[in-house]
């Protein structure tokens, strides 16, 4: 298969714009992520990083430009949006686990209701992913009984249970206590090594260097610089990138 499906980017944004009122939060954003690509998006707060990845599964709508996920275009068509959301897993800063369901129920809800899996099958799959994130013993507990790091790993497992093609991470460690950050990043690194297509908004630059095959620097709604990690950290081309890296790496 020299061409066709394999060459098509998994995710493609073409000249995407979004405004809140008169203010542009995304301005001419273009980005292509290949199948199995691992992208880290960084930049100062208010740069539009979260907004951009939230446009990829239509938690936010874009007002101009085109977004394709696995060749399907995101439009206002609800069926199309739901079809894309099935293939795109998302992990949030605040975990957003369902507090009224146990860990196991959190993981099986969507596979049973959306993928139409049998309960048995969904539970087997859930246990598989709980082992992958190393907390199978917490299956019967409620989210509030877990630490922040454990909750975020459950959230990752919950997204993986839908067998997504792409995983989006929106600052997954920003709400965590420092001692819990590593356990979550380790899980994400393993996921990256398994060949999952990933886009991750994060300030963890050590992690970015290790995981990413492409770094994207955004500021004021624009993509300023895109580069592989070795170039990005050692020879940033843009002045704003240099300034940002200087600030964030000195910490």
């Amino acid at each position: 298969m020299g061409s066709g499906v394999q060459d098509r980017p998994m995710i493609e944004l073409r000249h995407v714009y979004k405004w809140f009122g008169a203010q542009a939060v995304l301005s001419d954003v273009s980005l292509a992520v290949a199948r199995g690509g691992r992208v880290v998006v960084c930049g100062p707060s208010g740069a539009g990083k979260s907004t951009m990845i939230r446009c990829i599964n239509r938690l936010e709508d874009h007002q101009q430009g085109e977004i394709f996920v696995d060749g399907m275009e995101l439009t206002a068509d609800v069926k199309q949006i739901e079809a894309i959301r099935r293939e795109v897993g998302m992990v949030f800063q605040q975990f957003n686990l369902f507090p009224h369901l146990t860990v196991l129920e959190n993981l099986t809800l969507a596979p049973i209701r959306v993928r139409r899996m049998s309960r048995r099958e969904a539970e087997d799959l859930a246990m598989l992913h709980l082992e992958r994130v190393r907390i199978p013993e917490q299956a019967g507990k409620y989210p509030a009984q877990l630490s922040g790091g454990q909750q975020q790993r459950v959230a990752i497992a919950r997204a993986l249970c839908m067998k997504p093609q792409v995983m989006l991470f929106d600052e997954p460690t920003s709400a965590l206590d420092p001692e819990m950050i590593k356990e979550v990043l380790d899980v994400m690194l393993e996921l990256a090594q398994s060949g999952m297509t990933m886009i991750c908004v994060t300030h963890e630059m050590g992690f970015a260097r290790e995981m990413a095959d492409m770094l994207v620097f955004m500021d004021r709604g624009e993509v300023i610089e895109t580069a592989p990690p070795d170039l990005f950290f050692t020879a940033p081309r843009n002045e704003r990138t240099r300034l940002f890296l200087g600030q964030i790496l000195r910490r």
Partner: peptide, 23 residues
């Protein structure tokens, strides 16, 4: 109900009925 609950249900691909009834 916090907005994050709606968003998490949306992101999992749950439709309106499932999201409303189950979450």
């Amino acid at each position: 109900i916090p907005r994050g609950q709606y968003e998490a249900a949306d992101a999992l691909g749950l439709g309106y009925a499932q999201k409303t009834l189950r979450v």
